[in-house]
Structures are given as C-alpha cells and as structure tokens.
Design a protein around this nucleic acid. Structure first.
Length: 646
RNA sequence: GCCGGCGUAGCUCAGGGGUAGAGCAGCUGAUUCGUAAUCAGCAGGUCGACGGUUCGAAUCCGCCCGCCGGCUCCA
C-alpha cells in the first residue's frame, strides 16, 4: 500500500492529468463517494485525496466496511496526538497505531500521563474534530523529514525514519500536527464520529524492556455514538464474566495476601470443577494409551543443570536447600519422566511410551504479570512426555492434535494454531532444531488445519505447536502446546535398542492438552459466564421448600439425588420462596426443585430451569433419569470420538 | 521487573489531620409464605504492613506487601 501511494504521488508531479480518488469515485458513484472515508485501488487502500489516473477502477471504503474502523481509529490516534501536543508542550510522540478495539499513541513527557489528564485531552480532541481540518498527505525526501523532525526535537520519529528503506517517507498533516505515517486516513477530522479515551499505561519504546518507558494513552473510536455506546456496554458485560469476580461470587477459589501472590486457594465448589476435569483427564489418557506417573516437587539442582533448565530457565525457578544440598522446585515435569524411561533398558518394540502426570509446578513469574487464575505462580499441568522412535513422531503429533481437538470440542472452545520456532536463548544443534521444526510443520500440514508461524517463540529446548483459545474478553490464551525435543534425550542419554541390536536415540514430545488446570478453569468460567452446563456445575440441583411442611419430602429427594451421584443441596431455611429462588439463581444452579403442598401431596417434583422456565411436575424417578442423561451426554460424545479415532 | 491507578467490615462502597459510616451478607427473634430480596433488633473494622512528620495520622510523607490497567514475559 505504501508503494502505490508513493508511485502515484511521484507520477502526479510528472503529469497533471491525475485526479483525486474522491473525484474518480464521484464519477463512478457520487452517493458512495460522499460517504466514503477512503478508497480501494486494485485492492490497495488509498486516501480520498490520493491522485489516481482518470477512469481508475476504485471501490469506496464506507463506514461499516471491515477496514474502515482501522482507518478511523488510526486517524483518531493522530487527532489525539495533536491534542496532547497542544496541551503539553515539549511532549515527544512515538507511535500511534490502531489496534483491535481502538487505538493508542505513545508519548514521552516530563511526567507520565494519568487518568485525570484524559478529560482535557478528550475536550481538545473534540475541538479538533469540530474544526474539520483535512488530513493532507505528502511525500518528503528522507533528509527533509529528518531535518523537520530534528528541528521539532522528535527523537523517536528520527529513529523510525532512519529505519525506513524508501528514499521518500509518507507525511500526514492535519491542523497543527504533522506526523510520519503510511496512512491512509479519513478525509478530515470531522469524520471522527465518536471516541473515548479509555486508559493510560506505561509501554517500552519498541517493546524493549531496556528501552525508555513511554506513556501510552488508549482510546477507541467509532463512526457514530451508538456504536461506541454498544462497545462500552460490551466491555461492561465482559467485566461481569471476569473469572476473578465470578470466582469469588460462586465460591470457587480465592487469593490471599497472607499466602502470597499468584497462589490459588481452591474452595469446595471450585474443587468439584477441578476434580471433574482431572478425573476426565485420567480416564481419557488411559484410554488413549498413556500411563500415569508422578515425580516429586523438588529435585536436585544438579539435575536442572544437566537438563539446561538452570542455564535457561533459572530466573523462573525457586530454589531451596536441604542438608546443604541445593534443590530446585520443579517448574516442569519432564525430568522425573526421563528418569523413569532410563530406569531400564528399552526396546524399539515398547515405543512409543506416553507418561502422563497432573503435575504441580511452580514458576516465579514477574509480579506485574499475575492475573487471576490465568497467570499464577503455582499451577497444575496436564502434562505428558511422549518418547518415541523418529519414524513414529508424526503420528504421535497427530494423535495429540486429535486429543486437543476432542477436548476443545467437549468444552465448546474455538482455537487457533501457531508454530513457534527457535528462540535466541536455546540449546541444541541447528540440525536438531530443523528436524524438530520440520516434524511439527509436517504434522500440521497433514492435519489440514490453518496455522500461523511465530518466529523465535519456541521453548528453549525445542519448537512447538501452540493452541490458542479465545475467551469472553477476546483475549487469547495459550492452553494446549506440543513441543518437539531432540535435545533432552541427548543430554540424558536416552536410548532404546533397535531391531538391528544397536542403541538408538528416541525423540521426545512435551505436550499439554488443557495446559494449566488453573488457567483453563479461569477461561472456562468466563466462557460460560459461571453458568456451567450440568456436567460441570458444582451444584447441579437445589431443592427449595415453600414451607416447612415440605421439609421431609425435600430431604428424601435430596438424598435420592445424591444416591444417583448428582450434586444436590437442599434449602430448608425459613425464607420466602422468592428469596430462595433468587439465591439459587445467583449461584447459577442449573436446576431447582420447587416443593410446596401440591408436590408433597402428590409425591412429585416441579423442576425450574436456570433460564427461569418451569417444567411440568413429574415423578422423582423420571427427573433423575433426565438429569443423568443430560449429565452423561458430553463425555459420552467424547468417548465416541475417541473410539472413532482408534 | 517497569509505568500509572488503587488498598476503609465477609462483599460493594461513602468519608477524610481531632479517636470510624451505609447497603448487602452474618447472628437473634418474629413471620409458614408458590418462582430474583418478609420485617425488626444485634454484632462486626488496630481504615493492607512497617517507619516518619505532627500535640494528634485511617487521612500527609517514605518504604514494603497486595490488587487493578498496560509493557515485557509466558501454561
């Protein structure tokens, strides 16, 4: 897009026959031209003021088109920068792109900006919008741009310009603000319909931890107020789903200053969720040819030195000392698994070996990154290490991918795939890394699924396939990952005897399905907004009495439900039914059973669904049968899928 | 770890240099009631921790801990 703009602008200086995109569009469709905020020339986005040859085939970019918000928000960032420069003389501007939900601009000022600064900036922005100043595009030779921004003392812009390869750089000006920019932009500031500055934050220049800390202002923008309002409402809705809030309200888990940051305490209701998920994992792993193992929490430091963790992962580890011997608290489960493998001679016939452990690991995460259940310092991984012959590698990877797919389907999650390659800090030979990366990408190709490549984002011991699932706040979370490792088998001298009687080196896969049980439950809570389906609900049925005349029948029913392995509670309190219903509703219990004189007389139950809908009164037995069927359905489906894959 | 904001009762929050306040939850009592809050009373806090300024600190300052929004990092 950059290239085309530049070429056109240069051509224009050579010939006066060119007209603006706006004029060209007007010739094609005057109505659309009026509303358009930019144009598409052969798939490339251009400004409405861009020069094009007469008769060019342009399509308008109208508000509502997929790319229109990007353009608007990028322009909003420029308008904000203009406002900030006017209000805070001496401020330096860095970069200001549009992002998924809005835009930001990074500034360097004598002090960081605070939320109190935002109203004044918004007010100034509104003035700029009212002025309806045009966005004017220009192309400057690099040295002119360097001189201009040098005179302005805009060090970050100089840095950016020096990084550009073209001889000419794009310049945009609106009102009093001139910026280095690729564009395109809305025709004039007046097109910015509705905007709001949302937050301030620190951000490193170029994302470099060692670079200067800038002050970032976030905002969002839309074409009209209604859309902005809807967006802000969506954010409010998302906040209601926040697993940290729901976790407290639904009595699932807690955190305590006294215990320490990033350490989860599981309450009875949360523990039920964990137990359901963990039992399911155990059963499903055994079914798929894994065996269960378990290593200790602390292992001698020497072992971590041998594995490479001490050199490459030390800053994330906790250490301790027992009888003057240094130990490391495990941040990963692989070491014990390798020693199990090494505990006897292995034949090619017994591979692949699949060791599964629900392993509790501790990682010292930087304090600023902790976040509810999704970023903690102690968590349980559904971890496995698959040790196989090189010729089995691709099948093993595909097997894990199928496993992940089945589980994601079970819980109803969407996910995307990424292949992460060798990071700067890593161990192993280039050849091993190439082999491992090739194996993963071959399996990905074979699976027929779409994936993206994430350069340099692999683990220190090998490349990986990451599954990112998406939560209610549109954040994506890494859960499942498959990591290919040729290095650790080498460092630990793992061998098997081949059919030729020679010692051979096996390959290892590290993999998790849900990743961290803690994180997964956090995401799960937001996914269901706490209203879990029956099979996951910590409390499945609450039995509510209208008066104490129903107490005995209520207790009989509750016991019968429990005998049928359903999670039922009874509310015999001397409260009005409305209050009992309200409380059960707030706890998001899927079924209530309402018992008054009518039900007692007929020895029946009247179920009320979480949706508020009432079912007809029915026999207790048919109610139980109905619940059992509903509860079993998801896991039955999972088993069916597992069987189909055999 | 870095930047900014914040920390008052179990929860949500008001107050703010002169020895702490509401609603809900809790407890007690009354009420026997049909699908999202029955009424009344009682009790509950060294205002996150430590240090400093002050005649006096929950309030101002410093440091620490923790939480929130980002950056960086990651399951």
């Amino acid at each position: 897009m950059k290239g085309v703009l530049f070429v056109l602008a240069q051509d224009m200086s050579a010939s006066s026959e060119y007209i603006t995109a706006s004029e060209a569009l007007a010739a094609l469709d005057p109505k659309a031209a009026k509303k358009a905020i930019a144009a598409r020339d052969n798939g490339r986005l251009v400004d409405m003021s861009a020069p094009v040859p007469p008769g060019a085939e342009l399509t308008p970019v109208l508000p509502g088109d997929p790319e229109s918000l990007d353009i608007l928000r990028h322009s909003a960032a420029h308008i904000m920068a203009e406002a900030v420069k006017e209000l805070f003389p001496g401020v330096k501007v860095a970069i200001g792109p549009s992002i998924d939900d809005g835009f930001y601009y990074d500034f360097d000022y004598e002090r960081p900006f605070t939320p109190e600064d935002l109203p004044a900036i918004e007010k100034k922005m509104s003035e700029i919008v009212r002025q309806n100043a045009p966005f004017e595009h220009d192309l400057w030779p690099k040295d002119q741009a360097l001189k201009y921004f040098g005179d302005q003392d805009e060090a970050y812009k100089l840095d950016l310009i020096e990084g550009l390869e073209d001889d000419q750089v794009g310049i945009y000006r609106q009102g009093a603000f001139t910026d280095l920019c690729r564009g395109p932009h809305i025709p004039s500031t007046g097109k910015l319909g509705a905007f709001k500055l949302t937050s301030v934050a620190g951000a490193y220049w170029r994302g470099d931890e060692k670079g200067p800390m800038l002050s970032r202002i976030y905002g969002t923008a839309f074409f009209d107020r209604k859309e902005l309002k809807r967006h802000l409402q969506l954010i409010e809705e998302a906040k209601k789903r926040d697993h940290r809030k729901l976790g407290r309200e639904l009595e699932l888990f807690s955190f305590h200053d006294e215990i320490g940051a990033g350490m989860v305490v599981w309450h009875p209701r949360g523990m039920i969720l964990r137990n359901i998920i963990e039992s399911l994992e155990r059963a499903e792993h055994l079914r798929r040819g894994y065996s269960m193992v378990q290593g200790p929490q602390i292992l001698k430091r020497e072992l971590w030195e041998r594995s490479g963790h001490f050199d490459n992962y030390r800053e994330n580890m906790y250490f301790t000392e027992v009888d003057e011997i240094a130990y490391g608290i495990k941040p990963m489960n692989c070491l014990a698994h390798m020693l199990i493998y090494k505990s006897k001679r292995r034949s090619y016939r017994e591979l692949p070996l699949r060791y599964f452990e629900l392993g509790l690991v501790h990682r010292h995460e930087k304090s600023g990154v902790l976040h509810g259940l999704t970023r903690v310092r102690a968590f349980t991984q559904d971890d496995a290490h698959l040790i196989c012959r090189p010729d089995q590698l691709e099948d093993e990877i595909l097997g894990v991918m199928a496993f992940v797919t089945d589980f994601m389907e079970l819980f109803g999650f969407e996910y995307t795939l990424e292949l992460s390659t060798r990071p700067d800090k890593s161990i192993g030979s280039d050849e091993d890394w190439d082999r491992a990366t090739a194996a993963l990408s071959k399996a990905l190709e074979a699976s027929g699924k779409q994936f993206e490549i994430n350069e340099g984002d692999g683990a220190f011991y090998g490349p990986k396939i990451d599954f990112k699932l998406h939560d209610a706040l549109k954040r994506s979370w890494q859960c499942a990952t498959i990591q290919c490792d040729f290095t650790l088998p080498d460092r630990f001298d793992l061998t098997y005897t081949g059919d030729d009687g020679e010692a051979k080196r096996p390959v290892m896969l590290h993999r998790v399905i849900l990743g961290s049980i803690e994180r997964f439950i956090g995401v799960l809570v937001e996914h269901f907004a706490g209203a879990f389906p029956l099979w996951l609900a910590p409390e499945q049925v609450r039995v509510l009495t209208v008066t104490d005349r129903a107490d005995q029948w209520a207790q009989e029913i509750t016991q019968a439900l429990k005998d049928a392995d359903l999670r039922a509670e009874v509310d015999l309190r001397n409260e009005k039914l409305g209050a009992k219903v309200r409380e059960a509703q707030l706890m998001k219990v899927p079924y209530m059973v309402i018992l008054g004189d009518r039900e007692v007389d007929n020895r029946e139950v009247t179920p009320r669904l979480r949706s508020g809908k009432n079912l007809e009164a029915m026999e207790l037995e048919s109610f139980i049968k109905m619940l059992k069927a509903e509860q079993a359905e998801p896991t039955e489906r999972l088993r069916q899928r597992g069987r189909e894959r055999q």
